[in-house]
Design a protein around this nucleic acid. Structure first.
Lengths: 151, 151
DNA sequence: ATACTTGCAAATGATTTGCCAGTGT
DNA sequence: ACACTGGCAAATCATTTGCAAGTAT
């Protein structure tokens, strides 16, 4: 049940880099695929397929198909913050995991190793190897917690 | 953005208890509502609306409506383990949170306080108050990790 | 009696699929 | 050329909603 056959590790931080990675995996660079990538680079965080589509005037179906392909080849992934559509991000270099506040709707990206101690704790207590890449860690952020406590 | 106005704390562990809690909240006990509750008690873990419907020969719509009502009044909640439908559980007495293994599909329920240290760690590192009630902690269980490592 | 519930059909939101025409390599 | 892509319509899955008829209190 392991995922796609991603042989070579990928790392890119700009469009040319992503195009190169994409080429190495035998994917073509069509106009809409390029536009999806551009929109993902332009975004400052996870975005929905619908946002990508309307930002670049693309067909929603085509955006979904491109995201699926990019995801299958490991250039993109998606995260859930709650109900509502999944949000897509470039994998690029360095995975991000998210702390999502369902009071103010803010998502804070954290570097993967910042959560390693948390994973280690869960692993040692339960034997379970937790991953927070697909579901954000939902809760109340520091600001909202403070606001709530001063009320 | 705080949820429902649940004045009195509720605690029940059998059907009569749930019916009492339900009555206290002014809800009626219709046939399908009782059947939904029975099915939830019979289930040994989170179940989908569809499972509940077919197990008791209920109209799916009615199951969803009852679950929504029960959830709004705090007797039921739902959890997501990945893609696919949300799964419903009785709130009863003692919340459970889940460690879900996406290799073997097993969900392990853990008592709320078992995750308190994890929550504390996240709180102290990020100021974020994490809740794992809505999204399970997804990853690889001990058995699957062992199997993977011995390969 | 009155408000809450159900059944059934239809709508919704997110995502996927079929099919044929178009295009990247 | 040939396989990969796009457009558009239609299907799918999970869930919600409208409305008239039924029922719990």
């Amino acid at each position: 049940m392991t995922s796609a056959p991603n042989v070579q590790p990928l790392s890119f931080e700009d469009l040319p880099g992503a195009v190169k990675a994409l080429r190495e995996r035998g994917m073509r660079l069509s106009t809409s695929r390029r536009l999806v990538l551009e929109a993902l680079f332009a975004a400052n965080g996870p975005v929905s397929a619908e946002q990508l589509a309307e930002q670049r005037g693309l067909e929603l179906t085509s955006v979904y198909r491109n995201l699926e392909t990019l995801e299958r080849h490991g250039l993109v992934r998606h995260v859930h913050f709650g109900h509502g559509p999944g949000l897509y991000v470039l994998v690029g270099h360095g995975e991000h995991e998210y702390l999502f506040c369902d009071r103010c709707g803010t998502a804070r990206a954290v570097e993967p190793d910042e959560l390693d101690p948390v994973r280690a704790q869960i692993k040692s207590r339960f034997g379970h190897e937790a991953r927070f890449a697909h579901f954000a860690i939902v809760g109340t952020c520091a600001e909202c917690a403070r606001a709530r406590d001063n009320s």
